[in-house]
């Protein structure tokens, strides 16, 4: 950055700040409920950002010590909308140009060159802000996604050779694959002779969901164990029959309890009430 510009900017930093704050007030962030900050906090943040920018004007560098990044990371975590930050940076560009031209020590012919300079100087910051926020979102989404996947399909060994897999929530193709893998690995791991798949928590059973369940049951049978589908609610039974889905290939029961009784029967086990 031209030393002349730096001088002018440092000299006029009060005017610069005032103009910039006026510019910022035009940005409306009331629509973003997530950012719960007092006007004071917002003003402090603005002023801190302004100081940081000025500091970088004199060093002509925005990325070396990482203070700008840290600043924006903090802001993003507080939930300040990204459009407010980009507005702020764009506003800063306009204000800097205004102040430089008003000062008079720079002739107008230099203005275009000046404009390019400022562009080149502010754009990397802008890019970095957008990039960082996008990264933060992506990270959050992937964490939530994997957390959701982990929760989806546990196989729980209940008795010797009997396991239960409770399914909750809608089943899509990706989840069905995971369910099948967990199911088969669990069957091998626990040496389950009977697996009960409980669909009490599955809100809708359409042809696709039924197809996935049938596939899983077939795969379990290939491994050498039996699959019993339990938790079939009346409305699910109605949907299955009216859709013409054929579930006769493997046993079904209305409740987990009934399924468990059948499972114990298959594995030749019995629950006996203790005397006295």
């Amino acid at each position: 950055m031209d030393s002349l510009i730096v001088n002018v900017l440092t000299k006029n930093q009060d005017v610069l700040l005032k103009k910039w704050l006026i510019e910022l007030e035009k940005t409306d962030i009331t629509g973003h409920v997530k950012f719960a900050a007092t006007p004071n906090m917002l003003r402090d943040t603005n002023e801190e950002f302004f100081r940081l920018l000025l500091k970088h004007i004199s060093y002509n560098d925005i990325s070396q010590d990482g203070s700008i990044e840290r600043f924006f990371d903090q802001l993003l975590q507080t939930g300040l909308p990204v459009n407010y930050m980009t507005q702020g940076l764009q506003g800063m560009r306009r204000v800097i140009l205004d102040v430089l031209l008003d000062d008079g020590s720079i002739d107008k012919e230099k203005a275009i060159e000046l404009y390019n300079d400022i562009d080149r100087w502010l754009d990397p910051i802008l890019n970095r802000v957008v990039e960082n926020s996008a990264q933060i979102w992506e990270k959050t989404i992937s964490i939530q996604k994997s957390a959701l996947l982990e929760l989806t399909a546990p196989l729980i060994p209940v008795f010797q050779q009997v396991s239960v897999m409770p399914l909750i929530g809608t089943i899509d193709t990706e989840r069905a694959k995971l369910i099948m893998e967990n199911l088969l690995d669990g069957v091998i791991k626990y040496r389950s002779e009977v697996v009960l798949i409980d669909i009490t928590g599955v809100p809708v059973v359409d042809t696709m969901v039924a197809h996935h369940i049938i596939q899983a049951a077939d795969a379990v049978r290939l491994l050498g164990s039996t699959c019993i589908l339990v938790g079939i609610r009346p409305e699910i039974a109605q949907t299955i029959v009216s859709l013409g889905i054929d579930l006769t290939a493997f046993p079904t029961k209305s409740t987990l309890q009934k399924g468990m009784e059948r499972a114990l029967e298959i594995t030749s086990q019995e629950i006996v009430r203790k005397e006295d």
Binding site: L184, I188, A219, L222
Partner: peptide, 18 residues
């Protein structure tokens, strides 16, 4: 002793060997 991976392959191929 059919392995899980084998079972999944077979099911994907549409072979259920009922």
């Amino acid at each position: 002793g059919i392995q899980p991976a084998v079972a999944i392959t077979l099911i994907d191929l549409g072979i259920s060997m009922r």
